[in-house]
């Protein structure tokens, strides 16, 4: 095939594979990132597991909608004073802690940070942590800090 049409076929394959993969899955088993990477050949993000049993909503919902929750909940908190455990950013950070080799929680400057593990992959820049602390406070108070 000449070069141009070949490139177009390649692009179509890339675009159509994920829906095909999903269609082939069993309905009650959510796909894992590892299986998806085996099938499509696109490298997958290594998203570390959070602490605790589960997140405030199930993983698939959070993966798709966490940005919407953040955008709306923050207005409710700041402007209306609605503070609650359910969608509190502090609680998110408290659970989704990643520790480095010396068992200290990493900040957003470290690529291992929970948010960065996926956001670096998707190349979506976030600026939450220009203002918000990116690791739990208890560690700050105890004086255990990354340099």
């Amino acid at each position: 095939m000449p070069a141009g049409p070949r490139a177009m076929v390649f692009a179509l394959v890339i675009l159509l594979l994920p829906p095909l993969v999903r269609a082939a899955e069993l309905n009650d088993t959510p796909p894992s990132t590892e299986r998806a990477s085996m099938d499509t050949g696109v490298p997958s993000p290594g998203i570390p597991r959070g602490q605790g049993e589960h997140c405030v909503a199930d993983t698939q919902f959070m993966r798709r909608n966490h940005m919407t929750l953040l955008m709306h909940q923050r207005d409710e908190t700041v402007r209306l004073g609605v503070r609650g455990n359910q969608y509190s950013l502090q609680e998110c950070i408290n659970c989704h802690v990643v520790e480095d080799a010396e068992a200290r929680p990493v900040t957003i400057t470290n690529p291992q940070h929970f948010c960065r593990s996926c956001h670096d992959y998707a190349a979506v820049k976030i600026d939450c942590f220009e203002c918000h602390a990116s690791r739990p406070q208890a560690e700050l108070v105890a004086g255990v800090l990354e340099e």
Partner: peptide, 11 residues
Amino acid sequence: MLYGITRPSPA
């Protein structure tokens, strides 16, 4: 791909 491997459910 990321979008494809997730499936939404009500909050």
